[in-house]
Simulated assay, not measured.
Amino acid sequence: MSARTDEEATRVQNNTGITPDSLRKTLVEKLEAQHVDIEDLSGGCGQMYEAIIVSPQFAKKTTLARHRLVNGTLKEEIAAIHAWTPKCYTPEEWEKKKPQ
């Protein structure tokens, strides 16, 4: 569900309790993420997120395995939002890829 107004967006976020900060906190705690950048692509309604996640737990895992790990960690949160796009990197991969 997309919010049509700012008031509706605030109500949706209050009902789900899902914010970029809450997602970031969970990823840092459960995946030992060293860097988490979450962008709300929904215009503030909290229903569409894209994330860059850097964690040593991604080492020796395929992209699919990394996404499954993240999605399993955020299972309840993902069920409450419309769209979730993670981009997962090991610390070494992120050092090579991150914007200079």
Score class of each variant (00 low, 15 high):
residue 1 M to E: 04
residue 1 M to C: 01
residue 1 M to P: 08
residue 1 M to A: 11
residue 2 S to M: 11
residue 4 R to Y: 07
residue 5 T to D: 07
residue 5 T to P: 15
residue 5 T to E: 10
residue 6 D to C: 04
residue 6 D to G: 10
residue 7 E to P: 00
residue 7 E to A: 15
residue 8 E to F: 08
residue 8 E to S: 09
residue 10 T to I: 11
residue 11 R to D: 02
residue 13 Q to D: 00
residue 13 Q to G: 01
residue 14 N to Y: 10
residue 14 N to I: 04
residue 15 N to W: 04
residue 15 N to S: 13
residue 17 G to V: 04
residue 18 I to D: 00
residue 19 T to W: 14
residue 19 T to S: 13
residue 20 P to C: 02
residue 21 D to T: 07
residue 22 S to K: 06
residue 23 L to P: 05
residue 25 K to E: 13
residue 27 L to E: 01
residue 27 L to T: 00
residue 29 E to F: 11
residue 29 E to C: 03
residue 30 K to S: 06
residue 31 L to R: 02
residue 32 E to T: 09
residue 32 E to P: 02
residue 32 E to K: 13
residue 33 A to T: 08
residue 35 H to V: 08
residue 36 V to W: 02
residue 36 V to C: 12
residue 37 D to W: 07
residue 37 D to R: 11
residue 39 E to V: 12
residue 41 L to V: 06
residue 41 L to M: 14
residue 44 G to M: 10
residue 45 C to S: 11
residue 45 C to W: 11
residue 47 Q to D: 12
residue 49 Y to G: 00
residue 52 I to M: 13
residue 54 V to Y: 07
residue 56 P to A: 03
residue 56 P to G: 09
residue 56 P to I: 12
residue 56 P to L: 05
residue 56 P to H: 04
residue 57 Q to C: 08
residue 57 Q to G: 05
residue 58 F to N: 00
residue 59 A to T: 11
residue 60 K to H: 11
residue 61 K to Q: 15
residue 66 R to T: 03
residue 67 H to I: 14
residue 68 R to D: 09
residue 69 L to F: 08
residue 69 L to Y: 12
residue 69 L to G: 03
residue 69 L to M: 15
residue 70 V to C: 08
residue 70 V to M: 06
residue 72 G to P: 12
residue 72 G to L: 13
residue 73 T to A: 04
residue 76 E to K: 11
residue 78 I to M: 07
residue 78 I to S: 06
residue 78 I to Q: 02
residue 78 I to D: 02
residue 79 A to V: 01
residue 81 I to Q: 00
residue 81 I to G: 01
residue 86 P to G: 06
residue 86 P to C: 10
residue 87 K to S: 06
residue 87 K to Y: 05
residue 87 K to H: 15
residue 88 C to V: 06
residue 89 Y to V: 07
residue 90 T to M: 10
residue 90 T to P: 12
residue 92 E to Q: 12
residue 93 E to F: 07
residue 95 E to T: 14
residue 96 K to R: 15
residue 96 K to E: 15
residue 96 K to T: 10
residue 97 K to P: 08
residue 98 K to I: 14
residue 98 K to P: 08
residue 99 P to W: 04
